[in-house]
Amino acid sequence: MPEGGPHIVAKDLTMAYGDFLIQQNLNFEIRRGEVFIIMGGSGCGKSTLLKIMIGLKSPKTGDVFYDGKAFWASSKQEQVAVKRKFGTLFQSGALWSGMTLAENIGLALKQYTDLDDAEIREVAAYKLALVGLAGFEDFYPSEISGGMKKRAGLARGMAMDPDILFFDEPSAGLDPISAKLLDDLILELRDSLGTTVVVVTHELESIFAIGDNSVFLDPVTKTQLATGNPKELRDHSPNFDVRNFLMRGTAPQEASAA
């Protein structure tokens, strides 16, 4: 595994739906083992940026570099190889409703490893236990609560021991305690496995609790306003909108001195 250089780099990303521009000129770097937050007000294109990063939607211009290799410029096979290192937790969990939790987690293992069914089941049971769902292997997604679906989705995202975990609004729709537990789990994964974590969220508490680095997207100017550690941005960002966002709309006009 190459060390040193940034793990993920976004270069001059511009994203659009047809002619409708969402964001332009996005440039940021994510280091290995970092928790990176993509934040901004509703409708600024956070989830779209995530879709581009996980290879679901192509950018209009620019590219995302993983370990220095341009993702969108590479071939389909190479993209699949890069994507194998990803784990994704979708906003609603997006568990496959026709399969049990164990089958949900096992699908990636079945696809990419030589493990036999018993071994796959064992891994699935272990991953479920990690997220506090031990014993739920044979439940269908429709039989568990929203918070449990999210955790099961995380277990599925972790099935292949990914290098990078992507989270789309992990704490949306969770009660404060479950949200806190999920935050702790994210930090735990990062610390024990060295996983790089990319989180789309606008929950301030989460942002400050887990974020090492961040990018702030603005829906008005349609570009990034700031990038850096969220706590520092809150206290010292020269941009009023960024500070105001991070202080729940109560920021003073002047930034405090560094």
Binding site: K51, I54, G55, L56, V80, K83, R84, F86, T88, F90, Q91, S92, A94, L95, W96, S97, L107, A108, Q111, Y112, R156
Partner: peptide, 17 residues
């Protein structure tokens, strides 16, 4: 269609399936 709404199709694609 429901799987699409539920992001289940996206989840398949990200797995390379």
């Amino acid at each position: 269609g429901t799987m699409k709404v539920n992001e289940e199709v996206d989840a398949l694609s990200t797995l390379g399936i």
